[in-house]
Design a protein around this nucleic acid. Sequence first.
DNA 1: TAAGTGTATTAATTCTCTTAATACACTCCA
DNA 2: TGGAGTGTATTAAGAGAATTAATACACTTA
Lengths: 131, 131
Amino acid sequence: MILLDYRDKRPLYEQVVEKLEHLIVCGVLKPDSKMPSVRALAMELSINPNTIQRAYALLEQAGFLYTIVGRGNFVAPEESWQGGKQSALKEELSKAFENALSAGMDRDSIIALLDNVRQKLEEEAANDSNK
Amino acid sequence: MILLDYRDKRPLYEQVVEKLEHLIVCGVLKPDSKMPSVRALAMELSINPNTIQRAYALLEQAGFLYTIVGRGNFVAPEESWQGGKQSALKEELSKAFENALSAGMDRDSIIALLDNVRQKLEEEAANDSNK
DNA sequence: TAAGTGTATTAATTCTCTTAATACACTCCA
DNA sequence: TGGAGTGTATTAAGAGAATTAATACACTTA
């Protein structure tokens, strides 16, 4: 189902969270479908069940999964995680705006910076598709 | 010159940075005046010179000090640290923009959020002055 | 009730951060 | 010119947090 990278310096549970989140967002894992049990997935990846448990707990907290004790973990419907993602991003943006504005940066230069980043991302996207 | 708090869970070098930065920003330490040597300040605080060295290095990186090897550390002029604060803010903004854009948020809604925050800040400012 | 599931607690381990010990290199001035 | 003062670099010791593992518990269902 997923593959771990032991050269990656990040903790295992974080890798698991990231990959499963990706599979859910991309629709590979459908809402209400059953996730592998903590033990099964742990076995498959040759790691401890608690590590999967931790990943599942985080995913549940973020709204990507829901749990029924004794039955298993299931993929949550889109509504439950779309909101969370959006508000996390907005939170991050708001905080940055607040800091910038109260330090005296003005609206125009903030927007200029935004367009800067947009252009950079577009260029990167163009490069990637040219490979 | 400064006083350490051993109940504070933060590292010593961070406390030193914070207190010295404060003394510089508030003008207690004047531009181009000489800072105590790493050994002298270490002795005064009964800690290792390397800890002061680390604090001084961070302060230099942030533009609060400049160093002349063999002579000592000196307080930097205002211009050199005001700029650093700006670029830290831009860095924060850029990161937030990158996340928002790659998650599909569009330019207009980002700007809308910005104006939202601006309005909120203005209202707060108005309230404060009415007190 | 047995097999499969999630959960809780505790401990071992690993790792990073912080601090210290020590040796090196530069500047200045008597 | 050499000694006292300065910053710098390298390495290692120590402490603490984060990660992972071991194990026992509790719930659900067939």
